[in-house]
C-alpha cells in the first residue's frame, strides 16, 4: 500500500528527471544516432549487462540472507565506528571533539532537511540511472562497460563487508543527539529503505560509494558530457553529506564508501584496458595454483 505509492512516486520523479536531463545533456543528435545503432550497442554491452543483473540478484539475496549469516560470522563494530567518528573532527576541535554526525546535524534547518531527504532518495537514484542512459547514447561502449563493472564491484565488495561487519548507524545509537531526520519527518521513505536494505548494513556506505563512483566516472567522460561533471559532483557530495545529515551513516562509513568508490572505478578502468579473456583467467588460476604451497615428495 504505502510502499507501492512511495515507489511509484520515486519511479515517476526519476523517470522525469532522466528524461529532462537526457534531452538537455545528451542532445538530439546522439539520441537519433542511438536510435539507429541501438541493436549493435546492446550487443556490445550484453555480457556486461548480464553480469550486472546477476550481481543485482545475488546482492538482493545476500542482503536478505546476509543479516542472519553475518550474525553467525560477522564482527559487531558499532561501538568502534562511534569512537572513530568521535575523533574525526579532532583537527577542528582539539578539545571536546564533537561527534561528526552530531556536528553536521547541529546545522539542520527544515529547508536543508527537505533538500537532503530528496537527495538521499531521488537524487541518488537519478545519479545512478542517468549515466547508464547517457553512456548508452555514446558511440563507443567503453564508458558504459566501465560503469557496469564499477557498479558490480561496489555491490560485491559492499555486500561482502555487510556480511563481515555488523553495524548500526548513528540514528540507532546516538539518538539523544542524533535525530532520525529522514524518518521522523518523512516517515513514508522508510518503507522503501527498509524494503531495500537491512539497518545493520551501514559499513561502508553504499550510497556514498555508488554516488562517488558515478561522479568519478563523469570525469572520465568530461569530453562528451562536460555539463554532467559539475552536476554529478554536486549530487555526489550532497548524497555523502545527506547520509550523515540524516543520521543514517557514520562519517567513517562515508570515508570507506569513498575509498570503495575509488577502488571500484579502478577495477572498472583496469577491466576496460585489459579486458578479461579466458586465457588470462587460466593463466591467473595457474599462477594462483603455483602460489599455494603444497608438499611434494
Amino acid at each position: 500500500m504505502t510502499l507501492a505509492v512511495v515507489v511509484g512516486r520515486l519511479i515517476a520523479v526519476v523517470a522525469l528527471s532522466v528524461a529532462v536531463s537526457t534531452a538537455a545533456i545528451v542532445g538530439r543528435d546522439r539520441l537519433a544516432e542511438t536510435r539507429r545503432e541501438y541493436r549493435r550497442r546492446l550487443g556490445s554491452i550484453a555480457p556486461y549487462a548480464a553480469v550486472l543483473c546477476l550481481v543485482l540478484v545475488a546482492n538482493k539475496i545476500a542482503r536478505d540472507v546476509g543479516p542472519d549469516a553475518s550474525e553467525l560470522i560477522g564482527l559487531r563494530i558499532t561501538p568502534y565506528l562511534e569512537r572513530l567518528d568521535g575523533v574525526l573532527l579532532w583537527p577542528l576541535y582539539p578539545t571536546d571533539t564533537p561527534q561528526l554526525v552530531v556536528w553536521i546535524q547541529s546545522m539542520a534547518t527544515p529547508e536543508l532537511t527537505a533538500y537532503f531527504a530528496a537527495v538521499y532518495v531521488y537524487g541518488y537514484v537519478f545519479l545512478l540511472v542517468f549515466p547508464v542512459v547517457a553512456y548508452f547514447a555514446l558511440p563507443r561502449p567503453e564508458p558504459l562497460r566501465r560503469t557496469i563493472v564499477a557498479y558490480c564491484a561496489n555491490y560485491l565488495i559492499g555486500v561482502l563487508c555487510y556480511v563481515l561487519f555488523i553495524a548500526y548507524g548513528p540514528r540507532n545509537l546516538l539518538i539523544e543527539q542524533v535525530d532520525q531526520l529522514l524518518y521522523s519527518q518523512y516517515a513514508q521513505y522508510q518503507f522503501v529503505t527498509d524494503a531495500v536494505n537491512d539497518e545493520t548494513n551501514v559499513f561502508p556506505s553504499l550510497h556514498t560509494s555508488m554516488s562517488v563512483t558515478a561522479a568519478l566516472l563523469a570525469w572520465t567522460t568530461r569530453r562528451e558530457y562536460a555539463a554532467w561533471v559539475p552536476i554529478a559532483a554536486v549530487l555526489a557530495a550532497s548524497v555523502c553529506l545527506s547520509t550523515m545529515y540524516l543520521g543514517i551513516h557514520w562519517g567513517t562509513d562515508v570515508l570507506f564508501g569513498i575509498a570503495l568508490a575509488w577502488i571500484s572505478v579502478a577495477i572498472g578502468t583496469r577491466f576496460e584496458e585489459t579486458p578479461p579473456t579466458l586465457e588470462g583467467l587460466k593463466r591467473r588460476l595457474v599462477r594462483l595454483g603455483d602460489a599455494i604451497p603444497t608438499s611434494r615428495r
Binding site: A187, Q188, Q190, D194
Partner: peptide, 15 residues
C-alpha cells in the same frame, strides 16, 4: 512497520 514513525503513519493513513 519498520519504526514507530511509520506505525503512526500507517494509522494516520487509515490502514
Amino acid at each position: 512497520a519498520p519504526s514507530d514513525d511509520t506505525a503512526v503513519e500507517v494509522l494516520l493513513n487509515d490502514n
